[in-house]
Simulated assay, not measured.
Amino acid sequence: MIRHIVFFSAKHDADLNAVINGLNALGRIPGADFFEVAPNAKIDPISDEIDVVVYAEFRDEAALRSWKADPIYAETTRTVRPLRELRYSADFVSRRA
């Protein structure tokens, strides 16, 4: 299983809901076994620069590549990119199913 985690910060606080709404469109793409977008709860007192977290799980790398190749993914990127400051992404193979 591939776990896909992406962290975003909004350029402006006023854009936060638009970033979240834009990223939620990714949930319409088939292929993810699990998909969620959520605001960062900012519980960790050391790091609060991340505003939004995208978390998804995929059967394998091919499923993740197919998901990213969907036109909705490109549309979402065009919508969210101008509104975000930071974007950090990590993918890892989980040994737990």
Rank of each mutant, 00 (worst) to 15 (best):
F58Q: 01
N21Q: 12
S47K: 11
D60G: 02
D91A: 11
A63V: 02
T77F: 12
V93M: 11
Y88C: 07
P71Q: 05
L64M: 09
E57V: 03
G22E: 07
I5N: 07
V52Y: 04
K42Q: 13
A32N: 05
A32I: 02
A18Q: 14
H12K: 15
I29S: 00
F92I: 06
L16R: 13
A18H: 13
N24H: 10
E36M: 13
E85T: 08
V54W: 00
N24S: 08
A90L: 13
K68H: 10
A97R: 14
T79G: 00
P30I: 01
L26A: 01
T76E: 02
D13A: 14
S94K: 02
D48K: 15
A38E: 10
A14H: 13
S9T: 11
T77G: 12
F35E: 02
D51H: 05
F8V: 06
I43V: 09
S9C: 10
V80R: 01
P45S: 08
S94R: 03
I50S: 10
A97L: 15
P39D: 08
G22R: 07
G31A: 05
A32P: 03
D33T: 15
P45F: 12
R28E: 14
P39H: 08
R96F: 13
A69S: 14
V53E: 00
A38D: 04
W67F: 15
L83P: 02
Y88M: 12
T77P: 02
P39N: 07
D44F: 13
A97I: 13
M1P: 04
A14V: 12
T76L: 06
E75A: 15
A41M: 07
P45C: 11
R95V: 09
L64I: 03
A74C: 05
R87Q: 12
F92G: 08
D60W: 01
V53F: 09
S9Y: 04
V80T: 09
V52S: 00
I72F: 05
L83E: 02
F92E: 04
P45E: 10
N17M: 08
H4G: 08
L26N: 03
D44G: 04
S66T: 10
R95E: 14
D70V: 01
D91S: 06
V54I: 09
A62K: 03
